[in-house]
Simulated assay, not measured.
Amino acid sequence: MAGLNGASVYAVVDAGLQRPPAFAGVLYVVQGIGSVVIGLFAGALLRRMPERVFAAAGIMLFAMGVALRVVPSVPVVLLARAMIGAGLPCVLIAAMTAVQRETPGQLVGRVAATVNTPLFAPNAIALAAGAVLLALVDHCALLLAAGTAAAIAAVGCLLGSRARTQAAGPAPGGSARVEDSDTEGTETAHESR
């Protein structure tokens, strides 16, 4: 959905806001500010919530920002870009934090490199698909579809987090244990919060 969102930048600037193409630079600055702000608070937030919840919150923030971009108002679109800027990094931060917490030390480099492919490759593909779709459908329809799909993904992430928590049983020392069908035995999950 980030790729579809990115493909629609100039359509929002031109058709939505009726501004010159250079105004896209302002939108990128505001998105960057949103990313910096969430970066300042990400560590503290991740100490208080599981990675999946943090990622789901970011995805939902992104989804709302994408959908708000259909409103032909500069202040609304600026707010939407800040929301997108704050929401997108949450997924990346949560994913890489989970990799570091859950992966044995000697495998962190390989696992992190492998995780980068499903995190970033779909974005490039969706960017190209978005450019094609914009020639066929109105940018507002594309943004509403992308926002809706992202919101569904956020709910799925939360439901997955809840199912994982319910599957975890009590273990010695107050931590939860989760059965992993892909490995021998069990892995210790995060400390109970």
Rank of each mutant, 00 (worst) to 15 (best):
G3T: 10
S8L: 03
V12Y: 03
V12F: 06
V12Q: 11
D14M: 14
D14H: 06
A15I: 08
R19W: 08
A24G: 14
G32L: 07
G32E: 06
S35K: 10
V36W: 15
V37M: 14
G39Q: 04
G43V: 09
L46V: 04
R48L: 13
E51T: 06
E51G: 12
F54A: 02
A55E: 09
M64T: 14
V66G: 06
A67C: 08
A67R: 01
A67D: 03
A67M: 01
V70L: 10
V71W: 05
P72S: 08
S73I: 07
S73Q: 09
P75H: 15
V77G: 00
R81D: 04
I84Y: 08
L88P: 00
A95L: 04
T97E: 08
V99P: 00
T103N: 15
T103S: 11
L107Y: 08
V108R: 13
A113G: 15
F120V: 06
F120I: 06
A124F: 05
A124W: 02
I125S: 09
I125N: 12
G130C: 07
G130K: 06
A131R: 08
V132T: 12
V132F: 11
V132P: 09
L133H: 03
L133F: 07
L133G: 13
L134A: 05
A135Q: 02
A135K: 05
L136H: 08
L136P: 08
V137G: 10
V137C: 10
H139R: 04
A141H: 11
L142E: 04
A145E: 01
A146S: 13
G147W: 04
A149Y: 12
A153E: 03
A153R: 02
A154D: 07
A154S: 10
G156C: 11
C157D: 05
C157L: 10
S161D: 06
S161E: 13
S161P: 04
S161K: 07
S161W: 05
R162H: 10
R164T: 12
Q166K: 13
G169M: 06
A171N: 11
P172A: 14
G174H: 03
A176E: 06
A176P: 07
E179P: 05
S181L: 14
T183A: 13
E184W: 09
E191F: 03
R193Q: 14
R193F: 15
